[in-house]
Simulated scan of single mutants.
Amino acid sequence: MNVMRMEKGFKGAGELTNEVTLAEADVLRFARSDKVYLGRDKTLNSDLPWVCAYLEIAPDGDVDGHGGEAVLLGGRVVGSTASVAYGHTVGKILAFAYVKPEAAVPDTELTVIIHGSARAARVLGQAAYDPESALPRVDAKLKDTQ
């Protein structure tokens, strides 16, 4: 289940904690902006020290990582992974990482340190598997794969 949610780009318990704001976790779509509540203005209008980025990491066939790995941009630490899993369907290691906003831009090349080894990583702009969400739909037109 964890791998499938990672392949679809769905955030889970590792990313959605009380240690980050809704904006940092990129789930403001679940916050009511039309209601008045304690912390509303700060939640909706704050500068973000971190954002949750979706990454693909080059596999080495041995070690995938487990969360808490350092993420670097240009040799400088800009964050750490929250969840890491090998996506069997896509053949890549996928991760959610809290990084500085400038490192979260899709297609940004990063480095993730897994068990002391530097691995190439890239910020994804959409789900690694079925980004259009066509496959689970009963009315979807399947692509001819033959």
Score class of each variant (00 low, 15 high):
M1V: 03
M1A: 08
V3D: 14
V3R: 11
V3M: 10
R5K: 11
R5V: 04
M6G: 02
E7A: 15
K8A: 15
G9E: 05
F10I: 08
F10E: 13
K11H: 05
G12D: 13
G12V: 04
A13W: 08
E15H: 02
E15T: 07
E15Q: 13
L16P: 00
T21V: 06
T21Y: 08
E24A: 09
E24I: 10
E24V: 09
A25D: 01
F30W: 12
F30Q: 08
A31E: 04
S33T: 14
S33E: 13
K35S: 03
V36Y: 07
V36T: 08
V36K: 13
L38T: 09
G39K: 09
G39D: 10
D41W: 12
D41A: 15
K42L: 12
T43Q: 15
L44Q: 10
N45R: 15
N45L: 14
S46E: 12
D47W: 10
L48Q: 15
L48H: 06
P49V: 14
W50D: 09
V51S: 08
V51I: 14
C52H: 03
Y54P: 06
L55W: 12
E56R: 15
E56D: 10
E56N: 04
I57R: 07
A58E: 14
D60S: 07
G61Q: 08
D62P: 00
V63T: 13
G67Y: 09
G68N: 11
G68Y: 11
E69C: 04
E69A: 01
A70Y: 00
V71C: 03
V71L: 03
L73C: 03
G74E: 05
G74I: 10
R76I: 14
R76H: 06
R76W: 01
V77Y: 00
S80L: 04
A82G: 00
S83E: 14
V84Q: 07
A85P: 01
H88C: 01
H88L: 02
T89L: 13
V90E: 06
K92E: 08
I93Q: 01
L94C: 04
A95D: 05
F96Q: 05
A97G: 00
V99C: 03
K100C: 02
E102R: 13
A103E: 00
A103C: 02
A104E: 01
V105P: 00
V105Q: 10
V105C: 02
T108D: 05
T108K: 13
L110R: 03
L110A: 07
L110F: 09
L110Y: 10
L110I: 11
T111D: 01
I113D: 11
I114D: 09
I114V: 15
H115S: 13
G116M: 08
S117N: 05
S117R: 07
A118Q: 06
R119C: 06
A120H: 14
R122T: 12
V123D: 02
V123W: 04
L124P: 10
G125I: 10
G125D: 09
G125N: 07
Q126Y: 09
A127M: 03
A128M: 15
D130Q: 10
D130V: 12
S133G: 06
R137S: 12
R137H: 09
R137V: 02
R137M: 08
K141M: 04
K143P: 00
K143Q: 11
T145Y: 11
T145S: 12
Q146F: 06
